[in-house]
Simulated scan of single mutants.
Amino acid sequence: MHPDVRSFFEGYVAAYNRSLGDAVDATAIRSHFAEHFLGAGPNEVSLGNNDGSFTETLEQGYAFYRSIGTRRMRLRDVAVTPIDDAHVMVRVFYGADYARPESGEPLTIDFDVTYILQLREAGPVIIAFIAGDEMALYEKYGLKPAGQPSGSPDPARAT
Rank of each mutant, 00 (worst) to 15 (best):
residue 113 V to A: 02
residue 113 V to W: 01
residue 69 G to I: 05
residue 83 I to D: 07
residue 18 R to C: 00
residue 89 M to K: 07
residue 129 F to W: 04
residue 129 F to D: 08
residue 145 P to T: 09
residue 3 P to Q: 13
residue 81 T to S: 07
residue 5 V to I: 08
residue 47 L to C: 13
residue 25 D to I: 11
residue 102 E to W: 08
residue 144 K to V: 05
residue 99 A to H: 04
residue 100 R to M: 10
residue 4 D to A: 13
residue 61 G to N: 10
residue 101 P to W: 04
residue 146 A to K: 11
residue 35 E to S: 15
residue 88 V to D: 11
residue 10 E to H: 00
residue 118 Q to F: 12
residue 87 H to Q: 14
residue 128 A to R: 12
residue 92 V to Q: 03
residue 144 K to Y: 05
residue 85 D to Q: 06
residue 97 D to Y: 01
residue 55 T to K: 08
residue 83 I to V: 12
residue 74 R to T: 04
residue 148 Q to P: 10
residue 153 P to T: 02
residue 14 A to Y: 05
residue 124 P to S: 13
residue 43 N to C: 04
residue 12 Y to Q: 12
residue 99 A to R: 05
residue 126 I to F: 03
residue 41 G to W: 15
residue 39 G to Y: 10
residue 63 A to M: 09
residue 103 S to Y: 03
residue 125 V to S: 14
residue 82 P to N: 07
residue 4 D to V: 07
residue 109 I to A: 06
residue 108 T to I: 06
residue 19 S to M: 09
residue 8 F to C: 02
residue 85 D to C: 03
residue 115 Y to R: 05
residue 156 A to I: 09
residue 159 T to S: 10
residue 52 G to T: 00
residue 21 G to H: 00
residue 92 V to N: 02
residue 146 A to S: 13
residue 34 A to Q: 09
residue 98 Y to T: 01
residue 37 F to V: 08
residue 37 F to W: 11
residue 34 A to W: 02
residue 51 D to H: 00
residue 107 L to F: 01
residue 86 A to I: 08
residue 54 F to N: 00
residue 109 I to V: 09
residue 42 P to A: 08
residue 117 L to Q: 11
residue 98 Y to P: 00
residue 155 P to E: 11
residue 21 G to P: 00
residue 95 G to E: 12
residue 62 Y to A: 02
residue 118 Q to L: 13
residue 139 E to F: 09
residue 19 S to K: 05
residue 140 K to E: 15
residue 11 G to Y: 05
residue 58 L to F: 04
residue 27 T to K: 15
residue 15 A to R: 07
residue 85 D to H: 04
residue 36 H to A: 15
residue 132 G to T: 10
residue 31 S to H: 00
residue 74 R to V: 03
residue 95 G to T: 07
residue 24 V to R: 07
residue 20 L to I: 10
residue 123 G to D: 04
residue 155 P to N: 14
residue 138 Y to R: 08
residue 97 D to C: 01
residue 29 I to E: 03
residue 1 M to F: 11
residue 111 F to M: 14
residue 73 M to Y: 09
residue 18 R to Y: 00
residue 13 V to L: 08
residue 38 L to N: 14
residue 61 G to W: 12
residue 55 T to F: 01
residue 102 E to D: 12
residue 61 G to V: 11
residue 99 A to E: 09
residue 71 R to N: 04
residue 73 M to H: 08
residue 58 L to G: 02
residue 20 L to F: 12
residue 148 Q to I: 07
residue 146 A to V: 10
residue 65 Y to R: 14
residue 158 A to W: 09
residue 144 K to L: 11
residue 112 D to E: 12
residue 85 D to N: 03
residue 22 D to M: 07
residue 11 G to E: 05
residue 142 G to L: 02
residue 49 N to D: 03
residue 96 A to R: 06
residue 9 F to I: 02
residue 37 F to Q: 10
residue 84 D to P: 00
residue 158 A to L: 13
residue 52 G to W: 00
residue 80 V to P: 01
residue 19 S to A: 09
residue 99 A to G: 02
residue 62 Y to R: 01
residue 127 I to F: 08
residue 131 A to G: 15
residue 100 R to W: 09
residue 131 A to I: 15
residue 63 A to N: 10
residue 14 A to G: 03
residue 24 V to T: 14
residue 17 N to C: 01
residue 38 L to C: 15
residue 64 F to R: 10
residue 103 S to H: 02
residue 80 V to E: 11
residue 149 P to N: 03
residue 145 P to G: 12
